[in-house]
Computed example of a mutant assay.
Amino acid sequence: MISAILIAAMVQSAALTGQRQAFVTCLREAVASAKTEKVAGDAFDAYVRGKCAPVEQSFTASMVAFDLKNKVPRKQAASDAKLQIDDYVAGAVDRYKASTGAQ
């Protein structure tokens, strides 16, 4: 019984890790393509959110599902997922601005 629960938790965690890695990869690719396209620093947030929207949605859904399985209320799970996404995007924006000299 306990081993079945542990296996289920590991599978869920692995799925979430895969979604996270896909989102981080998308952010990195968006930074590279934005540099090529010479996207303004102030426009990068919207640019990256547009480029990574499908991956972001999938990652968000995975985070919410993981929290719900762990008895976190839906509203809190959605809020936590949004905060994590916003943190990842803010980090990408900061890195983009720093690498391009944009303010």
Rank of each mutant, 00 (worst) to 15 (best):
M1P: 14
I2K: 13
I2V: 15
I2E: 14
I7D: 10
A8Q: 12
A9E: 14
M10H: 10
V11Q: 10
V11F: 06
V11D: 04
Q12D: 13
Q12M: 12
A14D: 03
L16S: 01
T17I: 06
G18Q: 10
G18T: 07
Q19Y: 07
Q19T: 05
R20T: 11
Q21L: 06
A22M: 04
A22F: 00
F23H: 06
T25K: 14
T25E: 07
C26F: 07
L27G: 09
L27C: 14
R28E: 15
E29W: 09
A30N: 11
A30C: 14
V31T: 12
V31G: 11
A32D: 15
A34E: 13
A34C: 14
K35F: 09
K35V: 13
K35S: 11
E37W: 08
K38D: 15
V39G: 11
A40G: 13
A40L: 14
G41S: 13
A43H: 10
F44P: 07
A46W: 06
Y47E: 07
V48W: 01
V48F: 04
G50K: 07
V55R: 04
E56G: 07
Q57S: 11
S58C: 04
T60S: 10
T60N: 07
T60C: 00
A61W: 02
S62N: 05
M63P: 05
V64Q: 02
V64E: 03
A65Y: 01
F66T: 01
L68V: 11
N70A: 05
N70G: 02
K71S: 11
P73D: 08
P73E: 08
P73M: 04
R74P: 09
K75G: 07
Q76H: 02
A78E: 15
A78S: 12
S79W: 01
S79E: 08
A81P: 01
K82N: 11
K82D: 11
Q84S: 02
D86W: 05
Y88I: 00
Y88N: 08
G91T: 05
V93L: 05
D94F: 07
Y96N: 03
Y96L: 04
K97S: 08
K97E: 13
A98C: 00
A98I: 04
A98S: 10
T100M: 05
T100R: 03
G101D: 07
A102Y: 05
A102I: 08
A102K: 12
Q103V: 14
